[in-house]
Nucleic acid binder design. Structure first.
Length: 352
DNA sequence: CTAATTTGACCTTC
DNA sequence: GAAGGTCAAATTAG
């Protein structure tokens, strides 16, 4: 039993490594042929998705190894990750749904949690919801002991319709009011993410009802919300700025230019509508964000990408060194013991 | 009219 | 018992 799981586990990792290698080769080809920014972004998202999948698998595998007595849902690796990196979210959401029915609250506690720090742009003075591509509904607000600002609680708008149990908490930083700490809990099992990913030029008002075919939007799904963390426009008291400068890692082919461009776009207040960057969903990129956006200023050229490459090797061979790993900079908790066996453990479904 | 937000009450955890 | 998290009725917005 255990050996079988070990074999499957290793096979999945091998497939992921191979896929990532091919993606890297493709990326280098793109770099040599002056790719568009959107292509670069897409490429980076693909690579980071692979990396994260490997990282998770490694940390999970190292921590608990193949489960001795797998539950019907414990075949997460097989069911969540396909060789081509696509996410079978339907399967995932189904199994997810089955389990959550019997104990939703308990399940929520088992969901992975990660935190992003979003710095708003103090210059434009605009405040409002940020947009991470998902539709959130505010369901509560609490004054937190010792915190100057209240904490807002959001859940996925499609919780009931699509049984999506993703939630997030938005807490304004005491130290720097322009910084918002956004804690995500659970991954989206709904399809709405694709809406923001491909900004409808004509009818943005239909975003929430649009449903893009799963397969077609899969790659985009991977590129999701991390570049833009949206607090929803609902925060009346704390008024979250709708525009913010986002520390990111656009260091793929010509990092600096891209980062500059991104900042400028952020400033003009038309993120999704005009920027090619947002044609592709910001994916797990968020996970690369440093809590200290200022560090990004010194983020140069291809440094980031080299960093990525070496990290991947380390991850695969030496198990998640959080020191070097891109994920080391974020407060992302992946506790193998707390992870839901049914959690969509694919690169696209987990880190959006 | 429908959907989202607000906010006090209730529940859970420590 | 206190604090954080969630619920749900009332209110507001589109």
């Amino acid at each position: 039993m255990e050996s079988a799981y070990t074999w499957e586990y290793e096979t999945v990792i091998n497939e992921l490594v191979q896929g990532m290698e091919k993606a890297k080769q493709l990326h280098f080809h793109l770099c040599s042929t002056s790719p568009s920014r959107a292509q670069n972004m897409l490429m980076q998202r693909i690579l980071s998705s692979y990396e994260k999948a490997l990282l998770i698998l490694n940390s999970k595998g190292a921590a608990e190894h193949p489960p001795a007595a797998p539950t019907p849902a414990s075949g997460v690796v097989e069911s969540s990750i396909s060789v081509d990196g696509s996410c079978r979210s339907e399967d995932l959401s189904n199994s997810f749904k089955d389990q959550q029915d019997y104990n939703a609250s308990k399940k929520r506690k088992m969901q992975p949690t990660w935190t992003e720090q979003v710095k708003v742009n103090p210059e434009n003075g605009l405040e409002g919801p940020t947009d991470d591509g998902y539709s959130w509904r505010k369901y509560g607000q609490k004054d937190i002991l010792g915190a100057r600002y209240p904490r807002s609680y959001y859940r996925c708008t499609y919780r009931l319709v699509q049984n999506c149990w993703a939630t997030k908490q938005v807490q304004r930083s005491d130290d720097d009011p322009t910084v918002f700490e956004i804690t995500y809990k659970g991954a989206h099992t709904c399809n709405q993410s694709t809406n923001a990913v491909v900004p409808p030029p004509a009818s943005p008002e239909k975003q929430e009802t649009r449903h893009i075919p799963q397969q077609q939007s899969q790659a985009l799904l991977n590129l999701k919300a991390n570049l833009r963390v949206n607090t929803g426009s609902s925060d009346s008291k704390e008024t979250i700025p709708s525009q913010f400068s986002f520390p990111s890692t656009y260091e793929l082919c010509d990092t600096e230019n891209q980062y500059i461009s991104f900042s400028a776009l952020v400033g003009d207040g038309n993120l999704g509508a005009h920027s090619p960057l947002f044609l592709s969903p910001a994916t797990s990129e968020t996970n690369y964000f440093s809590p200290q956006p200022h560090h990004m200023a010194s983020f140069g050229g291809s440094q980031g990408y080299q960093h990525f490459e070496s990290d991947v090797a380390d991850i695969v061979s030496a198990h998640a060194s959080t020191t070097n790993s891109p994920m080391g900079s974020m407060d992302f908790q992946v506790d193998p013991l707390e992870l839901d066996p049914n959690f969509p453990f694919n690169a696209s479904g987990f880190f959006r």
